[in-house]
């Protein structure tokens, strides 16, 4: 199995103090990888470094075998890497429709961008009913749908998701998890999922990467984290 994303000895942070320290792991193509860890472990910082919002101090990120160093943030989505940031990043002042259009503006293939938009409306019918509503009028679940749908319009090969279930009702977050799994199985999408909600993340993940204080302390098949109580206790505390 090939890895779509290879992270090698990556360090980064804000200012002089490093947050990530020598992070190394791989994400196999077509899988769901869950990044787990306590608040402040550096999960968001990791995603921000992967998508170029933060510049790594050392280390390397390879996407599809190509080094991402020096690739500007706005070009990554053209290469097939989409990042749904923490807090979802719905532009509150724009309407649902505008948010979705924004996700496909860079695409040359206008027809397919439109098709992708229609697919999103089919996938999330609450959005279809609220096309003209502004982002700030949406509920938490709708916002998550919008953020996820907007990322899908880019037809990404790798999707970075930062805490998609944060603040959602368990039922809604469960639906989103199921959907992610389906996308993965159905269209060959690869998902890198940051989650606080360890149980639901492990429920759909193939691999678990546990972070603590900016380091990767364990990378293992998700099934092992699910089943091995001792391991779970030691690393995830439950």
């Amino acid at each position: 199995m090939t890895a779509i994303l290879e992270v090698d000895e990556l360090s980064s942070g804000y200012g002089p103090v490093p947050v990530l320290r020598d992070v190394t792991f791989e994400v196999p193509t077509g899988t769901v990888t869950a990044i787990l860890g306590a608040n402040g472990a550096g999960k968001t910082t990791l995603l921000r470094t992967l998508s170029g919002l933060l510049r790594p101090t050392t280390g390397r990120v390879r996407f599809d075998g190509e080094d991402l160093r020096g690739v500007p943030v706005e070009r990554l989505v053209r290469r097939g890497l989409a990042h749904v940031p923490e807090g979802r990043g719905v532009v509150a002042e724009l309407t649902v429709e505008e948010n979705l259009r924004l996700g496909g503006l860079w695409r040359r293939d206008r027809a397919d961008a439109r098709r992708a938009q229609d697919e999103v409306y089919q996938l999330f019918d609450p959005l279809a009913r609220r096309r003209r509503h502004a982002g700030h009028q949406l509920s938490g679940g709708e916002r998550q749908m919008l953020a996820l749908g907007r990322a899908l319009i880019a037809r990404p090969r790798l999707l970075l998701l930062d805490e998609p279930s944060l603040g959602l009702a368990p039922r809604v977050s469960g639906q989103i998890m199921t959907l992610l799994r389906q996308l993965c199985d159905g269209s060959g999408l690869t998902v890198l999922l940051v989650e606080q909600n360890v149980r639901s993340a492990l429920g759909i993940a193939d691999q678990g990467v546990v972070m603590s204080l900016g380091r990767v302390v364990m990378a293992t098949p998700a099934a092992q984290l699910r089943d091995d109580e001792q391991l779970r206790h030691a690393y995830l505390g439950f």
């Binding site: 070009r75 989505v77 503006l105 860079w106």
Partner: peptide, 16 residues
Amino acid sequence: RASAFAPEVSRLLGVQ
């Protein structure tokens, strides 16, 4: 408009 309201998100969506 998107760049003005949410520059970082816009960059992630490919807006220069």
